[in-house]
Nucleic acid binder design. Structure first.
Lengths: 233, 233
DNA sequence: TCTTTCCGTGAACTGTTGTTCAGTTCTTTG
DNA sequence: CAAAGAACTGAACAACAGTTCACGGAAAGA
């Protein structure tokens, strides 16, 4: 007698798995990675704690998948924004602005994914997330450099530094505390974007209109991937 | 009968306290904050675990003091380097270079002090450390701006971004892995310093000789306190 | 309907570390 | 040298969260 999973069951299992991941994501968005604990996540997903282990070998794996998901979305959004830009310089600007906006819009989540202390070992997925995002930035810097818009430079270090600057200034513990005010938020994003572009050698970014197209996901609907079902913390 | 602590005893107590702190520092320098555990630290300081609690109310307090010490030294070094510079711009460059050098020279420690996950709550001392360092950078940016060497800008965000860029590019998980090579290390410091200065609007930093005075401390290449008895773990 | 196989449950288990405290050793004082 | 106070010890304790597993129940096949 061979037991075979029917379609219905397969879908239920997939849905359950997704709901656990979603619960973890919501927990992280609300309370950071510290809130991603098996029992609360299971509770939020309306399953028992043990059930989580039928879908994820360990908490580390659960968080790893969460991190991978978030970073994948982040990279896709950056790529889309950059690809829509007319030239290499504005593509770079668009990518940087995009990630800045995303990161401030989901501060807790971004902090949790990239930097927040976690009890289990998530260095590897975090490293991959950082690398994926940095690689995307690096590619845009490279392109602008090849086009002669930027001075020759070590693009790997430049991309890393840009990521660090965005992160520290916008989501780190020293980030301005009043970023809930949309205007302050937009100003902060513009300021940091300008800094980042200047860092890699973009001259007159502001004058050339590279920094102005800051469209908040909540406000003007132009932002792609705005459908991320984020609870605004 | 009144028991009074003799000079000898007082000094022994102070020495012991200092040695515990030093043991914590060494542990952090070698294995990051994760290695700062009561039992190993006590062992390294040649005392029993319980003794640590005669000097520090909790592990959090021990780490807080360690963080404060390190950041105090960091700020002092920055200030000294900057004060020795001839003008506001080179003072800024000197401060940035100084912290970059310090931070790469003691990567594990810097990572532990500023960002590494710790089980106990050290957000407050970390926040103070970050703020102290950022404040020093901010003051130098401010001075250069007042002197008309930099465009007008939000110096608080700029300082934070600079700190983040340095940190991410030099000690974060994406930092180049070959920084043990002194030449690579010097290049990385110069590259990041140049990025940071450009970010705040310094033009031609390289041409103006603001980035070149990178002098590595003697201890940069060698691991600190290489001869340490393994203490289990 | 009955049997087999798998899914879900949640209370119990585990392993790790910070923390405590009664007993021991050392220092001071009369 | 003896009494008293302080410091030190290290094994035992506590707390917390991740993980396990024996059991109940639902779904699949005959």
């Amino acid at each position: 007698m061979v037991y075979r999973r029917t379609h219905q069951v397969v879908r239920r299992l997939e849905a359950r798995r997704a709901s656990i991941l979603q619960a973890a994501r919501e927990a992280a968005a609300e309370g950071g990675m510290a809130a991603v604990q098996i029992a609360p996540v299971a509770n939020r997903a309306s399953v028992a704690a043990g059930t989580v282990y039928r879908y994820f070998p360990s908490k580390a794996d659960l968080i790893a998948e969460l991190i991978a998901d978030v970073s994948r979305a982040e990279v896709a959004a950056m790529r889309e924004a950059a690809d829509a830009a007319p030239g290499p310089s504005s593509a770079l600007a668009a990518a940087v602005t995009q990630i800045a906006v995303h990161v401030v819009s989901h501060r807790k989540l971004a902090w949790g994914v990239l930097a927040e202390p976690v009890d289990v070992d998530v260095t590897e997925p975090r490293l991959m997330a950082r690398r994926d995002i940095a690689d995307e930035i690096q590619a845009r810097i490279e392109a602008a450099m090849q086009a002669g818009h930027l001075p020759s430079q070590d693009t790997a270090i430049a991309a890393t530094a840009v990521l660090g600057a965005l992160h520290e200034a916008l989501v780190g513990p020293l980030a301005p505390p009043d970023l809930d005010d949309p205007i302050k938020l937009r100003d902060a994003v513009q300021t940091v974007t300008l800094l980042a572009l200047r860092a890699v050698g973009v001259l007159d970014a502001r004058a050339r209109g590279l920094v102005v197209q800051v469209t908040m996901p909540a406000a003007a609907a132009a932002a792609p991937t705005a459908s991320e079902a984020m609870t605004g913390s």
